[in-house]
């Protein structure tokens, strides 16, 4: 490519009016040609862009893994929760038993006391009755004497 064409292309380049193809031409020209002194800086310019284009990331991107837990931990957790629950329920029961009774339980105790009283009364009367039966023994004695 003749110098005049390059210089006009360069002018367009600095105005931001060149296409990618034209810019590639410039790049190629400055990479290969034997240049007049006043164009020397542009060789470095385009070479610089070329170097920048070679830079590469050196860190590999690793997709983060979603950790899948061993199912045994699930069972272990369930078992542990079960044990804790039952211990908790047991502790609750034993702790609360004596002091607090439900109304129903209190009613039941009252009914029990009433029933006990009633039964005691009944058994007292029954004992009186049995004492009264002592007279029957006299009757037996008399009957023995007659039927001997």
């Amino acid at each position: 490519m003749e110098l005049a064409k390059i210089e006009s292309l360069l002018e367009q380049y600095f105005e931001g009016n060149t296409t990618l193809e034209q810019e590639a031409q410039l790049q190629q020209y400055f990479a290969t040609a034997d240049l007049p002194d006043h164009l020397a800086p542009y060789k470095d310019l385009f070479a610089g862009f070329g170097y920048m284009r070679q830079q590469k990331s050196e860190t590999e991107f690793v997709v983060p893994q979603v950790k899948r837990r061993n199912p045994i931990w699930g069972y272990a957790a369930a078992a542990l929760i079960g044990v804790l629950l039952s211990v908790g329920v047991f502790m609750n029961n034993s702790a609360d038993d004596a002091p607090t009774l439900t109304a129903e339980q209190q009613e039941a105790i009252e009914a029990f006391e009433e029933a006990k009283k009633a039964l005691q009364m009944l058994s007292g009367n029954l004992n009186d009755g049995i004492e009264g039966m002592a007279y029957l023994n006299e009757f037996d004695k008399a009957a023995e004497q007659i039927f001997k």
């Binding site: 800086p41 060789k43 470095d44 070479a47 610089g48 862009f49 170097y51 920048m52």
Partner: peptide, 15 residues
């Protein structure tokens, strides 16, 4: 860019 010459280094610095 050790292999780059001084002129190219200047371009990097200017950038």
């Amino acid at each position: 860019q050790v292999e780059a010459n001084d002129g190219v280094r200047m371009v990097f610095e200017i950038m």
